[in-house]
């Protein structure tokens, strides 16, 4: 589920739509969490689909580290790529704001962290400082943004967390461990909103 202080807006005719903050979302806020309404499509289900679904899958789903396709039920599936993303961590089962996301700013991912397959590289026009120009399937995942993720996850208990009811403590502990932080943050709980 995407952070509630977001909405879909039209970007332009090339990009289509994107997800924008309707209020400021501070760094360290959970911006997305995998939830029971998201559908994880394993290989057998995908093989049963006809060729007519190929373009649909590319457009609406992403690859998880186990080779499944994930179809998010809400605006999360409309998040655009940026070479300087405002959110990261999808392989952890949740995403976190890597920077303070101001009202009106777009929530973005680095698609390079989303296990693109060989056909899915694309020319990037995000215009961000350090834009790679070409986003290629290079096998890298969320670790590309490890320092930023570590800094953001260190703030988990410092900022309001509207998505706290969606994530389990175990998922968060695993995420913190994965970026090299102590599993629990000073015995403090998330501020549910």
């Amino acid at each position: 589920m995407i952070h509630p202080d977001t909405e879909i807006r039209r970007v332009d005719d090339v990009v289509g739509i994107g997800v924008f903050a309707t209020k400021r979302i501070p760094r360290g806020t959970l911006t997305w969490a995998l939830d029971p309404l998201d559908q994880i499509l394993a290989a057998p289900r995908l093989e049963g689909l006809g060729a007519q679904w190929e373009g649909w899958l590319d457009h609406h789903t992403y690859h998880d580290p186990s080779g499944n396709r994930v179809l998010c039920w809400d605006a999360a599936r409309s998040m655009n790529h940026s070479c300087r993303p405002t959110c990261g961590g999808s392989d952890l089962g949740f995403e976190v704001a890597l920077v303070d996301i101001e009202e009106g700013e777009q929530l973005t991912n680095d698609y390079g962290t989303l296990h693109l397959d060989a056909r899915e590289g694309f020319a990037c026009r995000c215009g961000a400082p350090g834009c790679r120009g070409l986003v290629e399937p290079d096998g890298s995942a969320w670790e590309r943004w490890l320092p930023e993720l570590r800094a953001a996850l260190a703030l988990l208990t410092e900022v309001p967390q509207p998505l706290a009811p969606i994530v389990t403590p175990a998922i968060l502990r695993a995420g913190r461990r994965a970026v090299g932080l102590p599993a629990t943050a000073k015995r403090r709980r998330l501020h549910a909103v």
């Binding site: 589920m1 509630p4 939830d35 029971p36 309404l37 559908q39 039920w73 009811p165 969606i166």
Partner: peptide, 20 residues
């Protein structure tokens, strides 16, 4: 890909998702 949920499945969802 349209989800068909039983009433029990809906009841078991976290409140935010149940409202959705």
């Amino acid at each position: 890909f349209d989800r068909i949920l039983t009433a029990d499945e809906v009841r078991a969802l976290p409140p935010m998702l149940k409202s959705a």
